Amino acid sequence: MSNSHLFMKSGFVRAPLQNGVGRYVPQLQRIVLKFCKTHGGSRGIRDFIEQDLVEFAKQNPSVVVYLKPRRHRSPVAVAEYLNGDRVWMSLHQKSHSEITKWIEVLRTQQGDVSATRLRKYQFTDHPSIQGPWTPFTFKDPELNVAQLPDPKFGANDRLPMTATDKLRIMFEKQKISEDNVKTGE
């Protein structure tokens, strides 16, 4: 066993902020694109900025995008995540399509997890090969795309009557009895 793990920061395998349980929280907080306006190695990043950057910013309103022109330097993308990680990526001599793919990779990951020594909350001599159980383990996948409430996934008539429904029924009964008194029945 090597001692390389001694110099790596350690962390737990977990979804930050219980990400994916309830709602999805994008982890990319900020991206800084550094480039040269004239250097040939920055051509791909300049094309990305001209053609796709506005659309990227519209599709990802939670990500702050900074453009930092620098003279006679290679293009670089620096991504900062909610967990404090910073990922630095050289974009020198990359084409427009390659840069689009790498920006998407930076957007979808949750920081530099590869440089982390993984730790676990639990330990067992006989680990399960099936993985941990969650409340969503045996749910019907069709439920992911269903428009709820749907009688197919549970009848709504079994729910207890709400206070608003009770008041509405009481009001209707009172109105009917008042109408009967006025007409003399």
Rank of each mutant, 00 (worst) to 15 (best):
S2E: 11
S4L: 15
S4G: 06
H5A: 10
L6H: 14
F7T: 12
S10F: 05
V13A: 01
R14G: 01
A15N: 15
A15T: 13
G20M: 11
V21D: 06
Y24R: 12
R30Y: 01
I31W: 04
K34C: 05
H39I: 00
I45K: 00
I45R: 01
I49D: 00
I49H: 00
I49S: 01
V54S: 14
A57Q: 10
A57M: 09
K58D: 04
K58Q: 12
K58H: 08
P61T: 13
V64Y: 04
K68V: 06
R71S: 11
V76T: 13
A79R: 09
Y81T: 05
D85M: 01
D85G: 01
D85Y: 02
R86A: 07
R86W: 01
V87D: 01
V87P: 02
M89V: 13
K94N: 07
S95C: 02
H96Q: 04
E98S: 13
I99G: 09
Q109W: 00
Q109A: 00
G111M: 12
S114E: 14
R117H: 13
L118S: 03
Q122M: 08
Q122A: 08
T124V: 10
T124E: 10
T124A: 07
P132D: 06
W133R: 11
W133I: 08
P135R: 06
F136W: 12
F136R: 09
T137K: 09
T137M: 03
P141N: 11
E142A: 09
V145N: 15
A146T: 08
Q147Y: 14
P149W: 06
D150I: 04
D150P: 05
P151I: 12
M161I: 11
D165K: 08
D165Q: 12
K166L: 11
K173G: 00
Q174K: 14
S177Y: 04
D179H: 09
N180L: 15
K182H: 11
K182A: 14
K182L: 14
